[in-house]
Design a protein around this nucleic acid. Structure first.
Lengths: 268, 268
DNA sequence: CAGTGGTCTAGACCACTGG
DNA sequence: CAGTGGTCTAGACCACTGC
């Protein structure tokens, strides 16, 4: 095959020679398979919103032609992205950009489930924004979001009720710049997952998240919002959510009541 | 190619016709790709300990010859199993049966990590078996282990200390039959992950697990063993661990102190 | 029926490991 | 250097979807 031009730009006079993809330093050769390069190009297109969440990307044959590689190579690149939940393959229909809306699983990142799995699961959550304002990032928030202390962030607090029982209290912080224009009303009025709103209104797609769990006791205000006393142990869930390229876009601190729900996790 | 004999048994007079792999009922055709069948055969060999944990399985070419398929098909089957952490591929060396011993990550299923990631992580845990006896399964334990109430199970309780601080209190139940001969001494004397002991001594390899997390308060006995008071919130981790073919082989209830550690989880 | 992803093959070549 | 897994290709055919 050819190790030539794979960038979106016209070929930069190849002909020269040398093995593919050297690191800048005189270090190891750092061999990079073709399909990884294709994967990076696809990632770039996703990031630049060439294809938007929910839309179909070009067929494997088209992509193979565009990048001048075989279908199998494109296929492997797409397999990788599909494994990471960035793309969704649907036989006979095409390959689609994953989205937080229109997914029959409402909350993709929420692991809290009712203890006794009621027949049809559980009714939808009732959400209520308790607070929403712009302020300057504390050191802790700045660290989580890779900002500088004092940069503008948007903070919101909300309560989620299941079967009319307040179950989750969440404080969340968003970087001010990408979420310019987000208001309490917009958050309150939107029906559907919050991440779907971020996707459609701000072009910010959450791809993965890291959570840190602890058992804690609530302070008086938190206890009141969850209708428990301050001696009730709660599950503290600290989350940083990332977009493409590991850029943090949300810091969230949740308090979960676990008297009728539990956090489900799978170890593989 | 041929859709003939792939079982370990001689071919059952083929010749007839019809599309491959019908469900017993007159339902859907239930098409099963070749690589899935190969995967099932490999799984069977793993289950029957034809290749033991840590050992290499035959090369892709050998397996392709054995099953009369192309290398690519074997490859895809192995890819699947490697994705599920049942096999480990090592370029240039071979493909190995995954194991809980000799893995530089000591506890593969333990998600508790120190808050401030100390430079070299953390020293090894000190383990102490507090209790170990055989008894009849309660309804709860029986349900978790797919046994009948009253069947013999082995119960153990242990405390794990990190940097000499008691941090984890675990109660665990094992089905009596597969773990015949397991004693408190054996558990106490063994150095290394408990699942490695199960593997080498009883041929029971834990493949995956489901956990349910809650925030709880300890009773007096639990609090004493963890050196906290009964008002200290603790993370309750209920785990069922499975061998091949989704057979439950361990039920475990852990209480984690989260004052200096947290449970780390990744959402993808 | 055309178009998409999914499977399977055969063969070439590359990168890595160990003796 | 031989053997292993890893990449890449080209082509055939299959299963599924929608029109």
């Amino acid at each position: 095959m050819n190790t030539e031009n794979l960038s979106t730009e016209p070929a930069s006079g190849s002909g020269a020679s040398d093995s593919p993809a050297e690191t800048a330093a005189g270090g190891a050769p750092a061999f990079s398979p073709l399909y990884q390069q294709i994967k990076a190009l696809l990632l770039q297109s996703l990031q630049q919103a060439e294809w938007k969440p929910g839309e179909a990307i070009p067929s494997e044959m088209e992509l193979a032609a565009r990048y001048r590689v075989s279908q199998g190579t494109v296929r492997k690149a797409i397999d990788d992205l599909a494994a990471g939940n960035l793309l969704v393959r649907r036989q006979g229909r095409g390959t689609f950009v994953a989205t937080h809306s229109e997914q029959h699983v409402q909350y993709r990142f929420l692991r809290l489930v009712p203890d006794a799995h009621t027949p049809q699961g559980e009714g939808p959550a009732q959400r209520k924004i308790v607070e929403c304002r712009r302020l300057r990032a504390s050191a802790e928030v700045a660290r989580a979001l890779h900002l500088h202390t004092g940069e503008m962030v948007l903070q919101a607090r909300r309560v989620l009720r299941f079967e009319n029982v307040p179950t989750i209290l969440e404080d969340l912080w968003l970087p001010g710049t990408p979420f310019k224009g987000l208001t309490a009303e917009r958050l309150s009025d939107y029906h559907g997952p919050m991440y779907a709103l971020f996707e459609s209104e701000f072009g910010v797609r959450m791809v993965r998240a890291e959570e840190k769990l602890r058992a804690v006791l609530p302070d008086a205000a938190q206890a009141a919002l969850l209708a428990v006393d301050t001696a009730t142990p709660l599950l503290s869930v600290e989350r940083v959510a990332y977009t493409y390229n590991d850029i943090p876009m949300e810091y969230r601190r949740g308090l979960y009541r676990t008297d009728a729900h539990h956090y489900r996790n799978h170890l593989g």
